[in-house]
Structure formats: C-alpha cells, structure tokens
Simulated scan of single mutants.
Amino acid sequence: MDRFADLERVSAWAKEAVAASVRKGWMQGVTDSELLPFGEASRGQAATMLLQVLTSLGAIEK
C-alpha cells in the first residue's frame, strides 16, 4: 500500500478493506502509484475487479 501516493485520501473507515483488496490482488490502482480513491470506476474496471474477486473465492473459473 505504501506505493500509492494518494493513500492518505482513502477514508479511515475504508483503509483496512482497501489494504486487504490490494494484498489479495483485487485492486491494483489506476497506475502503479495512484489509487484515485475518490475517482469513479469505469464499467470495465468494475467488471475486472468482480472477476478477480469471484475467481479468487473459487466461485467461477477464469
């Protein structure tokens, strides 16, 4: 998580969940150094994250 320059912009209540999502590979940031926590996810970004979550949980096969 330290690689993200905008980490301080993540809301306090969300920091633990965001950190877990990054560790599990569900979230990668919009660049190598930016999460953009107040940005809007595109439909493609949301679909990619959902695919990563469901695959890692064994709910679907890639």
Rank of each mutant, 00 (worst) to 15 (best):
S21I: 01
A59E: 12
S33E: 14
S42N: 04
L50W: 03
M27L: 13
L36Q: 15
W13D: 14
V10G: 07
L57H: 00
G25A: 11
S56H: 06
G39Y: 05
T48M: 13
G25C: 07
F38M: 06
Q28K: 14
A17I: 01
Q45R: 07
W13F: 11
S56F: 01
G25F: 01
S11D: 12
S21C: 14
V10A: 09
D6M: 08
A46Q: 04
T55E: 13
S21Q: 08
S11T: 06
Q52Y: 02
R9L: 11
A46F: 13
R9K: 15
K15W: 00
M49Q: 07
D32H: 05
F4I: 02
G29S: 09
E61N: 03
F38C: 09
M49E: 07
R23G: 08
A12E: 15
V10Y: 04
E34C: 05
G58R: 01
R9M: 08
Q45V: 01
E8T: 12
K62T: 02
A20I: 10
M27Q: 08
S42W: 07
P37N: 13
V30Y: 09
S21F: 09
A46M: 04
L54G: 06
L50D: 06
A17G: 15
L50V: 11
V53Y: 01
A20N: 08
Q28N: 12
K62R: 12
D6L: 10
F4T: 02
T55I: 00
E16S: 13
T31C: 06
T55K: 11
M1T: 14
W13N: 11
E61L: 00
Q45N: 09
L36Y: 09
E34A: 11
G39W: 05
Q28F: 00
P37Q: 13
V22P: 03
L57P: 00
T31F: 02
R43Q: 14
R3N: 12
Q28S: 12
T31H: 08
M49F: 08
P37D: 07
D6N: 09
R3V: 14
F4W: 03
F4K: 02
M27E: 02
Q52K: 13
E16H: 02
R23I: 01
A17Y: 08
R23H: 14
G58A: 06
A47D: 07
Q45C: 07
L57C: 01
E61M: 00
K15C: 00
L51Q: 15
M27G: 03
E61D: 06
